[in-house]
């Protein structure tokens, strides 16, 4: 009998993936036609860290996440997982190698139950339905949505929807999880609730978190490092304290004068 803890965080043998310590973008460029969505962006997310990615709308945050998860091939530059080149990997390969993500709009499987939404990712990773259900249930329990397990996902409140999306990405304990504005559209209180919970993920699952979030107060409080994008270029990277004091960031993004 497996314990709940092991159901939550261990990685079954069939996922004998090399658990990479770093997810790295190296001089990544993405061009759509003549338009550069991202130019020469480099960053590294480490296991155990919460890495903030901020920038105004259109800065290229989502495009970068797409590059880091196989949804977008860089025009030039490389994405490395634990030092290995990932070129040509499909999104499902990224997930199998331990890089998971969520989406801005949630993108739940709306006609399926909450349990099936989480279960299916474990099934995609190779588990039987029964084993996947056990793990999905343990995870939903941790998320606090176990009572909703048999509800159709499309009927959930949007705050719960986001949690299911994160649970779906967390199942079988990926090495990295990339959260694309998980709190978009939430009130300040809801946002703080969610991010407080997100902050417990790295320790619990021994993974690295990349977090895109607009609420400055929240992100400054929770991140180990922050990377600022503006117009597809890297503006700055550092600890929250460094970012807060960076004049270029203040001028371009925070809009503060000092």
């Amino acid at each position: 009998m497996q314990t709940e803890e092991s159901l939550l965080t261990d990685r079954p043998g069939l996922l004998a993936q090399p658990q990479a310590a770093e997810l790295t973008a190296e001089n990544v460029v993405v061009q759509f036609g003549g338009l550069a969505a991202i130019s020469k962006v480099s960053l590294t997310v480490r296991r155990g860290d919460i890495f903030g990615l901020i920038g105004p709308n259109g800065a290229g945050k989502t495009t970068l996440v797409n590059c880091l998860t196989g949804f977008q091939a860089p025009t030039s530059g490389r994405v490395l997982l634990g030092g290995d080149a990932t070129s040509g990997w499909s999104p499902d390969k990224f997930r199998k190698q331990g890089v998971a993500r969520t989406f801005q709009a949630g993108r739940l499987f709306k006609e399926m139950t909450v349990l099936e939404n989480v279960e299916v990712a474990a099934v995609g990773l190779g588990l039987t339905r029964r084993a996947a259900q056990l793990r999905a249930m343990a995870l939903l329990d941790w998320v606090g949505l176990a009572p909703q397990a048999n509800r159709i996902a499309g009927t959930l409140a949007y705050t719960d929807e986001r949690r299911v999306g994160i649970a779906r990405a967390l199942i079988l304990s990926p090495a990295f999880i990339l959260l694309d504005e998980p709190a978009a559209g939430m009130s300040d209180a809801e946002c703080e609730d969610l991010i407080e919970w997100v902050a417990t993920i790295p320790d619990r699952f021994n993974c690295g978190v990349l977090l895109i979030e607009h609420n400055m107060r929240v992100i400054m409080g929770v991140c180990d490092r922050i990377h600022v994008l503006d117009g597809g270029r890297s503006l700055a990277e550092g600890t929250p304290a460094e970012i807060q004091e960076n004049p270029a960031v203040m001028a371009a993004y925070l809009g503060m004068e000092s």
């Binding site: 999104p91 499902d92 997930r95 998971a100 993108r107 499987f109 990712a121 995609g124 779906r168």
Partner: peptide
């Protein structure tokens, strides 16, 4: 339901 999310859930469509 959602092809993109399915890919992100390790499913080989």
């Amino acid at each position: 339901e959602d092809e993109v999310a399915a890919k992100a859930s390790a499913i080989n469509v």
